[in-house]
Design a protein around this nucleic acid. Structure first.
Lengths: 197, 197
DNA sequence: TTTAATTCTTGACGATTGTCAAGAGTCTAA
DNA sequence: TTAGACTCTTGACAATCGTCAAGAATTAAA
C-alpha cells in the first residue's frame, strides 16, 4: 500500500532514493483511513488541519446550501485535497468531503507536513506542485463555467470522465455542472438524442 | 514605486531587512510595464514565461470563445498573475490578459523567479502563498457558480467589489457572472427593484 | 461642441432552467 | 423474495436566459 503511494507521488516529482527511504522510515506516522461508500470524511464547521491523499477511490467536495448539497469537485486516485482556506487561516471550513465509493486515504497532519518540508525541500516542492495542479484544474473549471453551457459541460465531462458516471449519483454530477438533477436528466436526454443523428 | 511593491508583499509574508535589501539590490532586473486602459498585456497562443505583479490598476483574464470574449477573472493591486498551466508545462496559453484601467505591472521572468527562490527561501514561500491565495479565490468562485444563481452572484459582487462597477465595461462583468450582457442588464434592474421594496 | 463609435438598455420570442409533484426504476436490508 | 428507501425520469408551468434587433445613453475623438 505504501509503495503505491510512493509510485503515485512520481507524477508530481521524481523522488531520490534518499527521499524514498525517508518516507519509508516515517510511514508509521502517516495514518491510513479506509472509507466505505457514502462515508463522510470531513464535515464543514471544523478546522481543517490535515492534508489528505487519495490512494484509491473517489471523494467529492460539497457545500451545504440551505440543506441542499452542492457538489463542487471530485478527487480521484493520486490527488491531494484539503480545505485550503481553513487550513491556512485556521478558520472553520465551509467544505464537506465524502467518499462516493470505497476509498483509501493517507492523512498528513499539519505538523507532519511541516516536518516533511523541513527535512527535504523536495516535499515542499511537491506540495507546491500539488497546489498548482489544483489551481490549474480550478481555473479550467471556471473557464468552463464562463465559456460553456451546461450541456457542453456535460458532454465534455461525459467524454473525459465517463468512469465518473458509472457508479455515482446523478445529483452529484448535476450540481457539479451547476444545474438541478431534473435538468441534468433532460440535458442528457437531449444530448444523447442529438448524438444519434 | 519599488517600495510600494515591497509594502504590498507584506500581505503575503513579512520580509526581513536582509530580504528587502536583496530586492533593492536587484530591482533593475525587474522591469516595470505601464499599460493604458484597454491595452492587451498578453495574447493567448504564446508561451507564458513571466510572473506579473499588479502594482496598481486592474487586469482582466479573458478567454476567446469563437470570437466571443469571456472574462473569467480580475486581478487588482497587490496580486500576482500568470497563466499557470502554460508557465509550468511550457505549452501555449489559452488565457488573454488586458488592462481595464491604467495599470502598472512588475515583470518577474521565470529565470529571475528561479534566482530569487534560490537566493532566499522566503521568496519560495511567498510564491507558494500567492498560489494558495489564488486557489482559495478560485475555489470560492467555483463554490459560487455551483451554489448560487447569477442574480445572487451579481448582488454579492456588487456588495463586495462595488468599485469594480465604476469604471468597467458591463460585458466584462457579465461573462464573469456567466451570463450575457443583456441578461446582466435585466438582472441589475430586477435586483435593484427588489432592493427598493 | 459636434460627430462618431461604443456601450447599455429594452423588446420580442424561442430555448432552457428551476420548481413542485407524481410515477418509474433501482438498490438495499430484512 | 419482498418491502421500503432512495434515485431517476417525466410532466406542467412559471421564471430566467440567450439571441437578434433596434433605440437610448454614454464615451471618445475630431
Amino acid at each position: 500500500m505504501f509503495d503505491r503511494f510512493i509510485k503515485l507521488l512520481d507524477q508530481y516529482s521524481e523522488l531520490s532514493n534518499e527521499e524514498i527511504e525517508y518516507l519509508w522510515k516515517i510511514r508509521k506516522q502517516i495514518p491510513a483511513q479506509i472509507c466505505r461508500k457514502n462515508e463522510i470524511i470531513f464535515k464543514a464547521g471544523q478546522i481543517f488541519n490535515t492534508m489528505y491523499f487519495v490512494l484509491d477511490g473517489c471523494v467529492r467536495l460539497f457545500y451545504n446550501n440551505n440543506g441542499n448539497e452542492k457538489t463542487a469537485f471530485f478527487y480521484t486516485k493520486g490527488k491531494f485535497f484539503r480545505a485550503i482556506e481553513s487550513y491556512q487561516k485556521e478558520i472553520p471550513a465551509k467544505e464537506n468531503y465524502q467518499a462516493i465509493e470505497d476509498t483509501t486515504l493517507l492523512l498528513f497532519h499539519k505538523n507532519l507536513v511541516r516536518q516533511l518540508i523541513k527535512q527535504h525541500l523536495k516535499f515542499k516542492h511537491i506540495a507546491q506542485l500539488a497546489v498548482e495542479d489544483e489551481l490549474v484544474t480550478a481555473q479550467n473549471m471556471i473557464s468552463s463555467f464562463v465559456t460553456k453551457s451546461p450541456e457542453q459541460r456535460f458532454l465534455e465531462l461525459f467524454e473525459h470522465n465517463s468512469d465518473l458516471f458509472r457508479n455515482i449519483n446523478q445529483h452529484y454530477i448535476a450540481s457539479y455542472l451547476g444545474v438541478t438533477p431534473e435538468s441534468l436528466s433532460r440535458i442528457r436526454k437531449r444530448a444523447l438524442m442529438k448524438e444519434k443523428n
